[in-house]
């Protein structure tokens, strides 16, 4: 178990280093360096050179990389070439907003999907089960921005229950925060729930076919009870995998929802930085997102041996 976790942690660290090199290389070494991009194509070579000197861009790439990495390790993501402002506070603030959004969405998705998927598997041959399956298949095909548009049309523009955009931090007012949270969270969660429902259903169906469920029934448990006592924990392994992957993709996927609802999340900051050609900010935000994705993967990896004793002893 300890070896396993240490192994995963080491892999995490290695991946992080390689990913940072990749991000840095992509941003800094490709044609059109940050200064050029920031000033636009019309800038004079002198202006570009001046900016390069100001931000140390004339230094060798290796030095710049370690400079950048060293800064990040101390929590300093550098200064924007475009606005001249520090990037770290922007990232910290927007990550919190996106974090709330994404975690609320995945929790809601799990709360919908686990019972629904289990039910769909148990009622596999009934019209209810078939309907749930069909609905989830359709739900998967709806992009989250389309879901958001429909939700806004119905619940905001027509019924007027929720505001169609905006954000309020919880400290500014819990009621205002919650009311603004509903539509973005639901539009993210519905689609994720549809995906997760199919995975849960499929995992439960697989588990129901397992011999140990038959053993449990032979002991005197009913089919349903055997599933609850023996099946769900076994089904949890694939479901945890998928939920982890979903959390990671939500983190980036929230970009569009943040745009639609004008939420100051990290996605909005990323799009703004791209639009402003602010490569330093883009580089920092991308690195934070990659870090978060890798952390999620690490957490999921550590969950496996907790669920499954075989992984505990094997690795």
């Amino acid at each position: 178990m300890i070896t396993y976790v240490a192994n995963r942690a080491l892999q995490f660290a290695l991946s992080l280093i390689v990913a940072s090199v990749a991000v840095f290389a992509l941003m800094s070494l490709l044609p059109g360096n940050a200064a050029q991009v920031a000033l636009g194509t019309n800038a004079t070579p002198e202006a570009v050179a001046a900016l390069e000197a100001q931000y140390g861009l004339d230094q060798p790439p290796v030095l710049r990389y370690f400079d950048w990495m060293g800064g990040m390790l101390t929590g300093d993501f550098g200064t924007s070439y475009v606005t001249g402002a520090a990037i770290t506070p922007v990232i910290v603030g927007s990550v919190q907003v996106t974090g709330i959004l994404v975690i609320a969405s995945i929790v809601l998705a799990i709360l919908i999907a686990v019972p629904l998927g289990t039910f769909a598997a148990l009622e596999q041959r009934n019209w209810i089960g078939v309907t749930i399956s069909a609905l989830s298949q359709i739900g998967i095909a709806v992009p989250n921005f389309l879901a958001a548009i429909i939700l806004v049309m119905v619940f905001s523009l027509t019924l007027g229950w929720f505001p169609s955009q905006g954000w309020m931090a919880p400290v500014e007012g819990v009621g205002g925060f919650l009311v603004r949270l509903v539509l973005p969270v639901v539009s993210l969660a519905l689609v994720q729930a549809a995906i997760l429902t199919r995975y849960v259903r499929s995992a439960v169906l697989d588990v129901m076919r397992e011999d140990y469920i038959r053993t449990a029934r032979a002991k005197g448990l009913t089919r349903t009870k055997a599933l609850f006592v023996h099946g769900l924990r076994n089904a949890a392994i694939p479901v945890v995998t998928v939920a982890g992957v979903q959390l990671a993709t939500l983190l980036v996927g929230a970009v569009i929802i943040e745009q639609i609802f004008v939420i100051p999340g990290i996605g909005s900051e990323l799009v703004r930085a791209v639009a402003n050609r602010d490569l330093v900010a883009v580089q920092g935000i991308v690195m934070v997102l990659v870090l978060l994705v890798l952390v999620i993967n690490l957490i999921v990896d550590v969950l496996y041996p907790i669920i499954d004793p075989r992984i505990r002893t094997a690795a």
Partner: peptide
């Protein structure tokens, strides 16, 4: 954003068994 793609990890990782990274993989 809503499509899970297979996540990272190593040899003894159950994720490796998830067949595809697409929506209906499993």
């Amino acid at each position: 954003s809503q499509n899970p793609s297979p996540a990272s990890s190593g040899e003894t990782n159950p994720r490796n068994v998830v067949t595809a990274d697409g929506i209906p993989a499993a």
